[in-house]
């Protein structure tokens, strides 16, 4: 089964691996992809397979891993068997718009955190794989065009970082991002650029409610100076937003951005 397991992981297909960790036939395994795909392996009982695979799909949808107890034939509220359901969801995605100084550092840090990273810039000479060897994909296109194309695949775990800090590019990119369900929209720029951008966004019909979704200026108030420090300030903000911990975000502070 390990070969199938490897293949699913490499192809980034979401699936769950169910393993009996306590009870008879310890170590028995079931690979679950979706309702319409056949199960691979067995936990030793058809009914148990059915119940466990249903629960595994639920865990997978929530991106969770954990233990469950069943009777020998999948009965609820019995404890003869303990299984571990491990979810393998595809990695979160980060789209970085703008092939600028900060981009390379952000790509590196995002890769450390396990993101699948795409860099996009409309300027073909800057949007090259050679400049961002660690990016999974480098696209030469207008940011808003790319977001319109891939936006419906994005959800709460994903991030869009708009580093162009040029209103010609970032206003359309923000407008396109706001149409998606992406969990994080960070927009780089000085406090003045930020004010100017807000005015332009409002001219384009963006509501106050929508503006609260934007992390602008992007990042935590770390007094970051270098591209690497700035990258850390951006991913720190993404983490703190997910964990809902209090933070000093640049969005909520005043004064100079760089320390």
């Amino acid at each position: 089964m390990f070969e199938s397991f490897l293949k699913l992981l490499k192809e980034e297909i979401p699936f769950a691996l169910v393993t009996i960790v306590e009870g008879p036939s310890k170590g028995a395994k079931l690979l679950v992809q979706s309702l319409d795909k056949p199960l691979e392996g067995t936990l030793g009982n058809e009914e148990l397979d059915r119940v466990a695979s249903r629960d595994a799909l639920g865990e997978l949808a929530a991106g969770r891993s954990g233990v469950r107890h069943y009777g020998l034939h999948g009965e609820a509220r019995e404890e003869a068997i303990q299984v571990f359901i491990e979810s393998f969801a595809p990695p979160p995605q980060m789209f970085i718009f703008g092939a600028v100084d900060f981009t390379g550092a952000l790509v590196k840090v995002a890769k450390v955190l396990g993101y699948r990273v795409t860099v996009c810039d409309a300027r073909e000479i800057f949007a090259t794989k050679k400049r961002f060897p660690q990016a999974d994909e480098v696209v030469a296109d207008w940011p808003n065009r790319l977001i319109d194309k891939v936006g419906h695949f994005l959800n709460a775990q994903d991030a869009i970082c708009i580093l162009t800090h040029d209103n010609k590019f970032d206003v359309p990119a923000v407008l396109a991002s706001l149409k998606t369900k992406v969990g994080y929209i960070g927009v780089m720029g000085s406090r003045r650029t930020h004010e100017d951008r807000l005015a332009r966004l409002k001219e384009n019909g963006v509501s106050e409610q929508e503006i609260t979704r934007l992390r602008s200026p992007i990042g935590m108030d770390l007094g970051a100076r270098t591209p690497e420090e700035t990258a850390i300030s951006v991913v720190s903000e993404i983490i703190a937003l997910r964990t809902k911990r209090p933070m000093h975000a640049l969005k909520d502070t005043v004064g100079p951005i760089h320390g």
């Binding site: 960790v21 969770r64 891993s65 954990g66 233990v67 571990f84 491990e86 979810s87």
Partner: peptide, 15 residues
């Protein structure tokens, strides 16, 4: 070895 469950504060999640 896989983390399958944890109680209280633990540094790594199940999986």
């Amino acid at each position: 070895a896989r983390v399958v469950d944890l109680e209280g504060s633990g540094p790594r999640e199940p999986g």
